[in-house]
């Protein structure tokens, strides 16, 4: 599935901060319309990989190609153009604190489109309705709960209808019901809009519910220890650590 029509190609990527290498020579691809999950234990480099995939940090080596265009080498307008095609939801939501939810969603529309104000307003309210927050459009981020902030951040990430959404730990800190609602939202968006999702998480129920494929990062090898369908990996992986991870067993139990 991955190689047939790759939308994102991560090619021989080495990432880290300053001199500290976190992942070495990582390569994989994400297919169009796929829900792709990056998982791994704490400190394995999941969020770091995501930050490099969205171009926040330059990799030490390798490149990230999004829809045929090299994000790593792109600059100026080309880079803006590639970034316009992706939406990002950060772990904390990262909504602009001085703006209401509607203003947060309106911002990318105001910056990138020539739509009249009334149209922008309507699109913003529609996006908020999609995540069930239309009645909170005038609230500031600080006035709503953490789960709502995450949903509002998804609405903002979707403002320009990007074909790809990156989500960093969408269900961390959410109650099971809100978390399940978020999963349902992701599946609904994928079905309705054919979006591709790259999600960093280690919520196993959520992974089984939504992931087409996962890659698992391993901090011991600073690389990928498994790629594939999460259920298959759970039952059939040759790697004891991978099976242990999916079965949620403590280290001692597997040994």
């Amino acid at each position: 599935m991955a190689d047939a029509d790759p939308l994102i190609v991560v090619d021989d990527l080495t990432v880290g901060y300053d001199e500290r290498v976190i992942l070495e020579h990582v390569s994989f691809s994400v297919a169009r319309g796929e829900v792709f999950v990056i998982l791994g234990g704490s400190g394995s480099g999941k969020s770091t990989l995501l930050k490099h995939m969205i171009g926040l940090y330059p990799p030490l080596e390798g490149r990230v190609v999004i829809d045929g265009r090299d994000l790593t080498a792109a600059e100026g307008d080309e880079r803006r153009d590639i970034l316009k095609g992706i939406g990002v939801m950060y772990q904390s939501g990262a909504l602009f604190g001085s703006m209401t939810l509607a203003e947060n969603v309106r911002l990318p529309l105001e910056e990138y489109t020539a739509l009249p104000a009334a149209a922008i307003d309507l699109v913003a309210r529609m996006k908020l309705e999609l995540v069930g927050l239309e009645q909170f459009s005038g609230h500031l981020p600080a006035e709503i709960s953490g789960g709502m902030q995450k949903r509002a951040a998804i609405a903002r990430a979707m403002a320009l209808d990007p074909p790809i959404l990156f989500l960093d730990e969408p269900s961390a800190g959410l109650d099971p019901i809100t978390s399940a609602e978020l999963d349902a939202l992701i599946l609904r968006l994928r079905r309705a809009l054919g979006m591709t999702f790259v999600i960093v998480t280690h919520e196993l129920p959520s992974i089984y519910a939504i992931a087409d494929r996962v890659i698992m990062l391993d901090k011991r090898t600073r690389g990928i220890s498994a790629v594939g369908d999460p259920r298959v990996l759970r039952d059939e992986s040759d790697d004891a650590y991978v099976r242990q991870f999916f079965r949620r067993e403590a280290e001692a139990a597997a040994a």
Partner: peptide, 17 residues
């Protein structure tokens, strides 16, 4: 600084702004 810590600056960057 608070916006940087809250990843709001990252959010701007990935919006291409």
């Amino acid at each position: 600084g608070t916006m940087t810590v809250n990843q709001e600056v990252d959010a701007l960057t990935t919006m291409g702004l």
